[in-house]
């Protein structure tokens, strides 16, 4: 099937199998390997991206369902090319400053889920952050610094929501 979609600001026109998962399309067709895969039951959230600005687990979306949509991955979140901290999204900065990652495998999904969470609720409580990130699993951090990072970013993201 023919699809047209925008990934991190770039337009892609492709012909794909109907069964192709969006995450496989991102990784293996579009070369956006910043989005990893952590499970096969949509439990872990590692593959979370923004689809038209809302967080989705890209393992539970078919590429054809993203036809006409705009996708933001972790590689499209920072301003510029992402090589300098200056252009990082407040959540990228906060995860770094608060040591909200260790191995980093859950981090792209965790950050994008948090972007959506803060768009919905710019000033969450700790409990709201914990509940809001329930669909994203991390095995390294024990979540404490992830929660701290999201709360820190909440103070600085007003107006910085991603309009993908």
């Amino acid at each position: 099937m023919k699809i047209t979609l925008t990934i991190d600001g770039v337009r892609y026109d492709d012909d794909v199998e109907p069964r192709l998962l969006l995450v496989h399309y991102l990784r293996e067709h579009a070369g956006r390997t910043g989005t990893p895969i952590g499970c096969d039951t949509s439990n872990c959230g590692a593959c979370t991206v923004l689809l038209n600005g809302k967080s989705v687990k890209s393992c539970s979306v078919l590429a054809v369902q993203a036809d006409g949509a705009s996708v933001t991955t972790i590689q499209g979140l920072a301003a510029g090319n992402g090589s300098g901290e200056d252009g990082w999204h407040p959540l990228q900065k906060a995860f770094h400053e608060e040591h909200g990652l260790q191995c980093g495998y859950c981090t792209p999904g965790m950050i994008l889920a948090a972007v959506d969470l803060l768009n919905e609720n710019p000033n969450p409580t700790e409990e709201q952050v914990r509940d809001g990130l329930e669909g994203n699993l991390c095995r390294c951090t024990g979540y404490q610094n992830i929660v701290r990072a999201v709360l820190k970013a909440a103070g600085s993201t007003t107006g910085a929501g991603v309009q993908a």
Partner: peptide, 17 residues
Amino acid sequence: TRKEDARLVTGQTSWTD
């Protein structure tokens, strides 16, 4: 703060897959 983070928070990672 960690040097590793720059590639990990921006998706410039080199996972085996």
